[in-house]
């Protein structure tokens, strides 16, 4: 085989391979999404994050506006702290609230932001004041049973 033919084929091969890698990175994966755009980070503390994981989406009105970049435990307040990386193009008021929600039946958890009404906007490093942690099934059932028994007790008292 001629040397130039080999060079040509190897060139085509390597180009196709790199194209495939780029396809996997850009079209299949979420590269070029939020990592590439400029972002800012805010913190949100939760009593319980449930099954929330790093890289989970942050949505507002159902639209993805950022991702959870880090989750850690605050050993002074005994709370979970999630660092949210938000796209610079979305600005939220200071009194925006964050809550952990579950999407679909399969139960992927995400953070939903509810915009507040204040004039000043969130900036890099700010903390969200109003948060709602994940709903834990056991707590829910516990609450339900507790309120039921309270109701019954009240009914008995009333008699």
């Amino acid at each position: 085989m001629e040397r130039t033919t080999i060079d040509l084929w190897v060139g085509i091969f390597v180009a196709a391979g790199i194209a495939a890698l780029l396809f996997l990175a850009m079209k299949v994966g979420n590269f070029g999404g939020f990592q590439a755009a400029s972002t800012y980070s805010v913190q949100a503390s939760f009593d319980n994050i449930g099954g929330l994981k790093a890289r989970a989406p942050v949505k507002s009105a159902g639209v993805v506006v950022g991702r959870v970049s880090e989750i850690r435990f605050d050993n002074e307040r005994f709370q979970a702290v999630a660092v949210l990386t938000l796209d610079q193009s979305f600005a939220f008021p200071k009194d925006t609230s964050a809550s952990i929600m579950t999407s679909g039946l399969l139960g992927e958890q995400y953070i939903a932001l509810d915009a507040g009404a204040e004039e000043t906007m969130l900036a890099e490093g700010d903390a969200l004041k109003i948060t709602q942690g994940a709903v834990v099934l056991e707590n829910l059932i516990g609450q339900f049973l507790y309120s039921k028994s309270e109701e019954e007790a009240a009914a008995l008292d009333g008699q």
Binding site: L21, V28, G29, F31, G33, Q35, R55
Partner: peptide, 17 residues
């Protein structure tokens, strides 16, 4: 495509592959 992009992470999945 969008569900795929939301679930596939470049570092965790593509790079590891």
């Amino acid at each position: 495509w969008s569900q795929m992009q939301a679930a596939v992470d470049v570092r965790e999945d593509v790079m590891n592959g």
